[in-house]
Design a protein around this nucleic acid. Sequence first.
DNA 1: AATGAATGAGTTTTCATTCAT
DNA 2: GATGAATGAAAACTCATTCAT
Lengths: 202, 202, 202, 202
Amino acid sequence: MPRQGMEPKRRAALVSAVIDEIGDAGSLDVTVSQIAKRAGMSSALAHHYFGSKDQMLIAAMRHILSVFSRRVAANQRKAKTPYARLCAVIAANFETHVFDRRKTSAWLSFYALSQSNQEAMRLMQLYQRRLRSNLLHDLRRLCDDAEQIEPVISALIDGVYLRAALLRGAPDPDAAQRVMAAADALLGQPTATQSIIPPSLQ
Amino acid sequence: MPRQGMEPKRRAALVSAVIDEIGDAGSLDVTVSQIAKRAGMSSALAHHYFGSKDQMLIAAMRHILSVFSRRVAANQRKAKTPYARLCAVIAANFETHVFDRRKTSAWLSFYALSQSNQEAMRLMQLYQRRLRSNLLHDLRRLCDDAEQIEPVISALIDGVYLRAALLRGAPDPDAAQRVMAAADALLGQPTATQSIIPPSLQ
Amino acid sequence: MPRQGMEPKRRAALVSAVIDEIGDAGSLDVTVSQIAKRAGMSSALAHHYFGSKDQMLIAAMRHILSVFSRRVAANQRKAKTPYARLCAVIAANFETHVFDRRKTSAWLSFYALSQSNQEAMRLMQLYQRRLRSNLLHDLRRLCDDAEQIEPVISALIDGVYLRAALLRGAPDPDAAQRVMAAADALLGQPTATQSIIPPSLQ
Amino acid sequence: MPRQGMEPKRRAALVSAVIDEIGDAGSLDVTVSQIAKRAGMSSALAHHYFGSKDQMLIAAMRHILSVFSRRVAANQRKAKTPYARLCAVIAANFETHVFDRRKTSAWLSFYALSQSNQEAMRLMQLYQRRLRSNLLHDLRRLCDDAEQIEPVISALIDGVYLRAALLRGAPDPDAAQRVMAAADALLGQPTATQSIIPPSLQ
DNA sequence: AATGAATGAGTTTTCATTCAT
DNA sequence: GATGAATGAAAACTCATTCAT
């Protein structure tokens, strides 16, 4: 059964299993054995690949954040105006594959992990700083008080995630709309969001 | 050493120790022994009073939420107009004794706890429903789309808490102002918050 | 509340509580607190009176055995012939107050206790030797092979108890009859038991 | 040290250790650590294989009962007449490997266990029902009142076990003979047991 | 490469027992 | 006499991690 070049597949399977297992459990209280079993291998092999449970969690977190970052970048590339780019960044947070039950639940757990794990904390902050600079970059072109508005939008996104994780049902499909509308209000613009977000970003 | 009437004191000491310990650790990964030690007693006594670790955590969560609820009620009583009451509710979330490092950190942990503990979930939802109805009650008197605005404000408050917990430094003293300003924007009013929130609520 | 001369009442209440608690639980896995609570006092007081949990159990066992011994003696006094006395001894084992659910269940537990507790072992053996000599005394007057028959009758009684304890329902009301009939068969007599046991012994 | 295919060996070693440990202690008050140590492994491994202490005890009980059942079946196969089969069943209870100090002691403990453990109760009752139907089957061919005699023989066997367990010395080697003689008496036959039980069953 | 075997270290929980009042 | 307060010691059980094969 052991073939060549299995390592990347094994690692990916484990990362995915971590997210699913944490998402299902709703907390970090999952065992390496559960994760390994879900990924179809022994816990010993899981350790062989990642060295420790924490590293497995970090890898999963890194995976979620990097998928997200790629979605943001992809969306931004398609947008031409500052406003469209702002929409693109916000919308990326709520895309189907990002804003689903297991992911939000895992994400909340990673937030918790970052309270006790240095590396997780660095990762989380790195991602927040990126989101922040992305938002600021476009907000500055749209208004004078970007520095005031950015933390509100960022916190709002996090809050929406938090509530989605808490409820554990299917996440609100209108979440993106609501956040965009709020952003509009903060920018002092009439809410015209619906017609402005391009369909590709929904 | 053993004196009469210790139970309430011991319980209070434990509840406080739970919050501090979780606040310091930044996660629920604290042992009953640590908590009991901080509260100045044996872990056996802690179990004697609370029956189980989970009940200890629940009691601490209940304490935080009830303190918060009392602050909301007190603030509301002083406010006369719907707008003032709205401000009062929001401001209660950010009072010094509520919005401090350990409390927000513990609160995030309780959010996580509610993912795996039925009773914690019920408590959390109860508190959210109360906050929601408080906000709605006044928002309805201030605008037509209260149902749209309430979840945004609620999520925003949660998001601000989440970020405060993440950073683990002293929480932003302007948090209340920012949220109020955002609320104003959502209500379509010019931001006049600073002059409107009475000093007693800050 | 503490009055004079409470000690005998307290001790009796505890002994009774031990038997009931063990009878209900079906095993020695009962706590001193449970026993004390059932007896209406604190576990500290229970210790004050008996010194240790083991002593409480021993006292309860002693109580059961002494009640039984008194019943045997009382029954024997009424009987005039060796055969009637034999019947009396056997019947004493199955009187209503002796052969009831809680008592048999407790008795089995005491048997188990005697495996690990010296004093319980001595007590149990003392009671068995007494029963043995009682039976032998009359059997010798009824047949030649009393030494062969006595252990069979003794074992039979114990076996009936064991099974009564196992089933935990209401004990078989015909148990005495059956054992008597068996004794008759062992003595080589036709079974005429029913008419021979005097009503007062049933 | 870890080799392949250890599980069956480990399980067997644990089952054996449970019986020995309980037999020595004379009660269920043995710890998993003691058992595991006697079986030459860590308590963690014992838990790994059996899941819980209760399951370990149940497995040991199951082992004892199944060994016994196999002995009964083997003995019965060799017997040709109903009377010989009856002897075979009874004798099986007193074979050397069945009726030894540790086994009877453990067996009494399992009786006690069945008072508090559902599965143990089911097992015990299953075994009793089997023994009962075995006895009844042959008794019906030997007399008219099989239903009256069976419970006496069954109780007698249990009683002999109980007393053997209590004394904790080497069990009475004549136990089988005595029980057989009693059975003969109950059947109304002259005691001719000694010449009838084939040597192979002793 | 892969795994079953194995365990040390730790966690919650229980409870008999002691003690100050 | 009586009790609430308090704990040490031990128990079952868990799990990340290591290792021989």
